[in-house]
Design a protein around this nucleic acid. Structure first.
Length: 867
RNA sequence: GCGAAGGUGGCGGAAUUGGUAGACGCACUGGAUUUAGGUUCCAGCGCCGCAAGGCAUGGGGGUUCGAGUCCCUUCCUUCGCACCA
């Protein structure tokens, strides 16, 4: 055995062994059927160029789980693929003049090498890329099935329009309301798009959250709020137009405040706004102003509340009172009816709006014991209470008032109770090149004609280079021009492609049968689904996970799979953030500096006192912390780490740095510790092995020292196993092993018995660590058990007999303050413990002469004496 | 703005069910070995205090024999907000 740990040779040898033995191949049934299956999946990466720290974190967590379950006897599937369509490839193409396909495939090749160098136990035979026609043809195929079932339909949607480049922009391409390339003010534009009717599944998507016991509560809460089921009343405010009676419809969850309505507000896109703008230039200008800027809801919600009267009036549905209709920039066309009733007395936004424009404010709810004044908003104004100033509804509580008002409206045919969802149907059309072509043909005679199944896939040409002006597919006749499958006349293809969320909504099923040419999925998907453990960034808590749940249910209803939910257990890993450094030049331009080039200065207590650029030694400014991004130049390439320390050190450091679900602010200051620990582990095994192997301890009388060590050892096995299986918290698992190694290092006994305990201990340690640092454990295991394979070893068992103790240490408190410790027989009862404690010196010192009021005994933990 | 989560030493974090706050590691300080060291080993390390002891888990208040953990309130940070993936 080598006396020194050499990560490079150890890791290369282990990887060659794994490859030679096909160690990571998952067995499809019936071969794999004897063992229980475990499908462990990490979210597939977008092939952006290189792995980043978030990838390393994500895939290490997944690999630790995969290897742990493999050792526990499961038939484990851990696949990998590429979320290969998307905007960055088009941006790179514009920057470098390279087609997105080539850029993407080059990135895949590089990143695959990186993943392999980290030693992940991936079954590469199932690799897939979503930009492969063999994959995306099934996007198209399912789209057509959904179209047949009415789950796909066409309607207009709002997009960001760059008037200079004449192109649709993604939200991230709009910066401060301007196009990122042209700097032109962005406009909203209505265009026809295809939608998937996810709202038809809203009720099930919401209800089934209760069945997801393996999901974090916070994710389920976020999804439930996103779906947003609300019970309310749909109310019609009547008005006359051209002699015809019409209704302005609003939805409200606070129908009990209807009598406090002093105005109505509609979105700028609302038909009434358009109507009024026809005859009012100022209003037309305001509506135009509202239509400027991006479509991002976060931005809209933070705009200053602005409005303008339309000059139109509607009638209050109960009193018939005249109510003015305003256009408000805070009313969203996409939610509810695109119009709201304004109740400034009891809605904070309406209150601010009314104050700004001098609209009347009327209090109609009395929250008991809370005063009301129209001059300043108070949080309780929005609380439930009893109706006042509300005519016949006076005195009713919330539910009573809602019931009565809904009933009255129904009688007049002006409204009814209604359930509304915040969830909107999923617009999947993208006016972009690098995505799945939507399989539709536009024929002048026949309209929109679906591409027949026999003509699938509609293949995306791979040699186009976008230039930022419009969709290159629309400028490519060989793609655009086609024959109408219905009438045979010349026709045009749809040039929009699908949202890339479509690609990622079912890839986890395709891993089961990536070679299946005749169907989207087959019986192998039936075997592997659902995913037993899914791991990915918390940033996907809503959209990706919700869309995947939706697609799974659609596929189920089409008879393709039987599962209701795709992911049984979910681990949402926290973001990896990093500090942002910059310098401001004389003309105010900001240059962001990569943290790898920054050196931190510390004082003699280790406290940070400054930061400087390594190359010139001059100070730099800090701009706080944020997600690793190109624009802030605060990304860290894991490759340096892997090359300098090896994959195992990188993996261990990542897992030790924080619990998987926590946000992690990057710092490489602990990497030396990880490296040091592995070197020490190697040396400890080496020193044992050179003395000659011993049979692992299997019973017999032990000295107190050896008994104590075995107690530590088996406590560690129990703790670490629980951390892997239940808690999924690897930092504490590693800490527990470190703690045990510290105890083992103190063992000086060199007897044969001690050597066998040490042999047992080292074997257990190597097994416990092998999911996290598999290469070094592979090598060490072969030294401890020549010709053995650590991956094929069963997980260590806790020896319960080693955990038996007859004495325990208890904490002594006086008035809740720690005053000492005492040892007591484990079997001691409450009364005996109380007696021992009251007589104990550390207690009497503090209770001396005072009357004991109460004694709290927690057996096995503490005794608290209250005086 | 709305929804979700988080805040503990100089730093990452531990404390799993209301029961010893700071495990484990980094950094730092002192020492030994080596003198080739970005090696290894030993010791110290929340703050105040000579000590006894006191204080301390973002801030303020509360419940409890006992609160990092529960409740109220407030500030700050991160994630998501439907065309980044």
């Amino acid at each position: 055995m080598q006396s020194q740990y050499d990560p490079k040779s150890v890791e290369q040898e282990a990887r060659e062994y794994w490859e030679r033995t096909g160690a990571f191949r998952a067995q499809d049934p019936p071969v794999g059927g004897a063992r229980p299956k475990f499908y462990c999946l990490s979210m597939f990466p977008y092939p952006s160029g290189k792995l980043h720290m978030g990838h390393v974190r994500n895939y290490t967590i997944g690999d630790v789980m995969s290897r742990f379950y493999r050792m526990r006897g499961y038939n484990v599937l851990q696949p990998m693929g590429w979320d290969a369509f998307g905007l960055p490839a088009e941006n790179a193409a514009m920057a470098n003049g390279v087609p997105p396909a080539k850029w993407t495939y080059d990135n895949i090749a590089y990143m695959k090498k990186q993943l392999q160098s980290l030693g992940f136990a991936i079954d590469w035979e199932r690799e897939l890329a979503t930009c492969d026609p063999d994959y995306y043809r099934w996007n198209q195929w399912l789209f057509l099935r959904m179209l047949e079932k009415g789950l796909v339909y066409k309607k207009t949607g709002t997009v960001n329009w760059d008037p200079v480049d004449q192109t649709v922009l993604a939200n991230e391409q709009v910066i401060d309301g301007r196009g990122w390339r042209t700097g032109a003010l962005v406009e909203k534009r209505e265009i026809p798009m295809y939608y998937m009717a996810i709202t038809k599944y809203a009720e099930e998507l919401l209800g089934a959250l209760d069945t997801l016991s393996g999901w974090p509560e916070r994710v389920k809460t976020m999804q439930a709020n996103w779906i947003g089921k609300s019970h309310g009343v749909n109310i019609g405010f009547p008005y006359e137009l051209g002699g015809e009676r019409k209704l302005l419809r609003v939805f409200t969850t606070r129908a009990d405040t209807l009598m406090g309505t002093t105005f109505c507000a509609v979105a700028a896109e609302h038909p009434l706004a358009a109507l009024a703008a026809k005859s009012d230039k100022n209003l037309a200008a305001f509506v135009d102003e509202c239509k400027r800027g991006s479509v991002m809801e976060a931005e809209l919600a933070q705009l200053d509340k602005k409005g303008m009267p339309t000059g139109l009036f509607v009638a209050h549905p109960i009193t018939g009172e005249k109510i003015e209709v305003w256009v408000g920039n805070y009313v969203l066309m996409a939610y509810g009816e695109g119009a709201v009733m304004g109740v400034p007395g009891h809605d904070e936004r309406d209150f601010a709006f009314a104050k700004k424009y001098g609209l009347p404010i009327k209090s109609v709810i009395d929250v008991e014991g809370r005063p009301y004044s129209i001059y300043a908003w108070q949080p309780w104004y929005a609380d439930y209470g009893k109706c006042v100033n509300s005519g016949k509804y006076n005195g009713l509580d919330y539910q009573g008032a809602v019931d009565a008002i809904a009933a009255d409206l129904k009688k007049k045919d002006l409204g009814d109770k209604q359930v509304t969802w915040r969830l909107r149907d999923w617009g999947i059309s993208r006016q972009r090149y690098w995505g799945t072509p939507i399989p539709i043909i536009h024929c002048d005679a026949c309209g929109d004609v679906p591409v027949p199944d026999k003509d699938l896939p509609v293949v995306l040409p791979e040699d186009l280079v976008p230039d930022g002006t419009g969709n290159p597919l629309a400028k490519t006749p060989s793609f655009l021009n086609c024959i109408c499958p219905k009438c045979g006349k010349s026709a045009k293809r749809e040039t929009d492609t699908m949202d890339t969320f479509v690609d990622s909504s079912w890839y986890f099923m395709r891993y089961a049968c990536p070679d299946q040419a005749k169907a989207m999925v087959d019986e192998r998907a039936e075997y592997w689904m659902a995913v037993d453990q899914y791991i990915g960034g918390i940033e996907h808590a809503i959209l990706h996970l919700l869309y995947s749940r939706f697609w799974t249910k659609v596929m189920r209803d089409l008879g393709l799979v039987k599962v209701d939910e795709p992911f049984a257990r979910l681990l949402t890993q926290g973001m990896v953030l990093n500090e942002i450094f910059y310098r401001k030049s004389g003309d105010g331009r900001i240059t962001y500096l990569n943290p790898a080039e920054i050196e931190l200065k510390v004082d003699d207590k280790g406290v940070r006192v400054g930061a400087m650029l390594r190359s010139d030694g001059k100070p730099v400014e800090s701009d706080g912390i944020g997600t690793m991004s190109k624009s802030k130049n605060n990304g860290v390439d894991p490759q340096d780490l892997i090359e300098k320390y090896g994959a195992d050190t990188a993996r261990q450091f990542m897992m030790f740095a924080s619990p998987p679900e926590d946000t992690l602010v990057w710092s490489d200051s602990g990497i030396e510790g990880a490296s040091r620990f592995l070197r020490r582990l190697w040396r400890t095994v080496y020193e044992h092995v050179v003395e000659g192997l011993a049979p692992a301890y299997s019973g017999g009388a032990l000295s107190p020292e050896l008994r104590a060590l075995r107690f530590e050892l088996h406590s560690t096995v129990a703790k670490v196993t629980d951390d892997y299986a239940r808690r999924q918290q690897y930092n504490t698992a590693i800490a527990a092993v470190m703690e045990f190694m510290n105890a083992l290092a103190k063992l000086s006994d060199a007897s044969a018995l001690a050597r066998s305990v040490r042999q047992e201990a080292l074997q257990v340690v190597v097994l416990l660590l092998s999911p996290i640092v598999p290469h070094i454990c592979h090598a060490l295991w072969r030294e401890l058990k020549p010709a053995g394979d650590v991956m094929r070893e069963p997980w260590p068992q806790v020896d319960e007999s080693a955990l038996v103790q007859d004495e325990v240490e208890l904490v002594l408190q006086v008035n809740g303050k720690l005053r000492g410790h005492m040892r007591a027989p484990k079997s001691a009862g409450r009364e005996q413990l109380e007696k021992l404690a009251l007589a104990h010196e550390s207690v009497t010192r503090f209770t001396d002469g005072q009357a004991v009021k109460k004694v709290v005994v927690v057996p096995g933990r503490l005794v608290n004496v209250v005086v």
